[in-house]
Each structure stands twice: as structure tokens, then as C-alpha cells.
Design a protein around this nucleic acid. Structure first.
Lengths: 121, 121
DNA sequence: CGGCTAAATAACCGTATGGTGAACTAGCCG
DNA sequence: CGGCTAGTTCACCATACGGTTATTTAGCCG
């Protein structure tokens, strides 16, 4: 499918490219113009422009107008959403692990009381 | 670029696809076989197999062997690395924002002067 | 052994992606 | 106005990606 209307997907897609990650990292330090963003890379301006469009489509950055410059701005809440998704799954995994851990502790506990019979060995 | 040797890129690439995110979410609840993972999707098994390969290449999942089954396991630390990258940039942005905020407070001291207003979303 | 099931691989297809150079738009300045 | 600077859009290319069907490998069981 076209992946359209999938905000999270667009965000991770945007972050999948090293150039775009570098741009995001750069913008985390403050707004910057397209040429400023392009400077560190061995890439033509249209290339950078495309990357910025991908970032913009994901909502990760926004662009305003200031004379002939188009300063790019990191929209940190989109970064947050992506992090949140990851964190939820990390958490789900942890909880499930805790449950297993608890279960293991239970079945490995010497059968002092009337719970489950621990036939260990 | 082949995106090879770019762990973080491979991770975000893996997370960019909704099917793969669903697989990750499913695995966060516990290990599962390929057919179990495939069940919820309207997709052929080779399709799922390809997705699993992408996930495996990124390190997000690992596969063991158990009879003729290949149970898939979420490698949560890779999820952590991705989250860490995002968090670092979030943090960098926050710190920079605090600085700007402090600066704004300073230049806006008593009797506001005719400094140009800086607007940031 | 043969046959069944789980899963991977191969070959292929349409579309998306990342990159280029060339041409165009937008706004400042002399 | 003309020209410089900042940036986008266009046309194009190669390769990667997501998906398919058909075939193949791997391991259990009768």
C-alpha cells in the first residue's frame, strides 16, 4: 500500500535514512535554512530538498518563510509519538517478562503451602 | 546507499512498515511462530517471511528452531537503541529550547524594546 | 520410506525511493 | 529593471521494496 495516512509509518520512514536522521539531529540544535542543512552533505540541493519533503510530510519538521530563506523547524512532538510507540511495546514486553518471571518464581518456590505442587527435579 | 551497516537505519526501516510494527507489537506479548504471526494478516506466507527477514536483519527479532517451527523472539534492546536515539534528540531540542526561553525572558525584560519578535510555533 | 506441515527461497512484477542535472520560482539588493 | 541568492520542481535513472505464485528445504510421524 501507499503508506499514506500512516503517520507513524511516515515518521519511521523519515528516520530510516541516515541523511534525514542527521538533519533531524541538526535541527534538534536549532532551526536552520535549507542551505545550512545541506552544507555537511555531499549531495546536491534537490536531494536535500527531497529529504526535507519526506521529513515535512511525516510532520517531523515544518518550514516557515523568512525573506528568501525557508528556515526548518523540528516538530518535537512527532518525535515523541514515535518514541511513545516504541516505549509502549518495550513496556508490553517488560510486563510480559515480569509475569513470566513471577510465574517462574512461583513454580520454583518450595511447596511450603497449599499452592501448586512443585515437582521440581 | 545500501543502508547496510546502518543498524539504526535498519531498525527504523523495519518499524516503518505497518505489518512489521504489528508483528513487533505481537511479539512484545510473547514469542510466536511464523504461521501464528501471519494469521492476522491478509498476506501470503512468503510476504510475512520477507518482513521477518527485514526485522531479523535489523536485529529487532531473532529466530530459534524448535522442531519444524521457527519461533520468533523480540530483541527488546534494539527497540531500546532506537528509542535512545529519539530521546537524545528530543533532549537536545528541549535543552536548546530552555536556552532560547531563558534568552527570551532576558531580552523581554521590563519595558519591552523594539526588538523584533521571534515567533516559534 | 512416503507424506504431511512449517517455513524459506526463487523468480518476477509494479511502484516507491534516492539520487542527479536542468529549469523554474521567489524575494532581496544595486 | 536586472541580477544574485535561496530553494523548489521537473524529467529522468537505477535500485530497493512490498507483494505475488511456484518451488524447495527441513523436520515430524505413520
Amino acid at each position: 500500500m501507499t503508506m499514506v495516512e500512516d503517520r507513524l509509518g511516515a515518521t519511521f520512514t523519515a528516520l530510516a535514512d541516515p541523511t534525514r536522521r542527521a538533519i533531524v539531529a541538526r535541527l534538534a540544535a536549532g532551526d536552520a535554512t535549507v542551505n545550512e542543512l545541506a552544507a555537511p552533505f555531499d549531495m546536491t540541493l534537490p536531494g536535500i530538498s527531497k529529504h526535507l519533503k519526506v521529513l515535512e510530510r511525516s510532520g517531523l519538521i515544518s518550514r516557515s518563510r523568512q525573506a528568501q530563506f525557508r528556515p526548518c523547524h523540528l516538530e518535537v512532538q512527532v518525535l515523541d509519538s514515535a518514541m511513545e510507540w516504541i516505549d509502549q511495546n518495550r513496556r508490553a514486553w517488560s510486563e510480559r517478562f515480569d509475569k513470566l518471571d513471577a510465574h517462574l518464581r512461583e513454580i520454583q518456590r518450595p511447596a511450603s503451602r497449599s499452592r501448586k505442587a512443585t515437582s521440581h527435579g
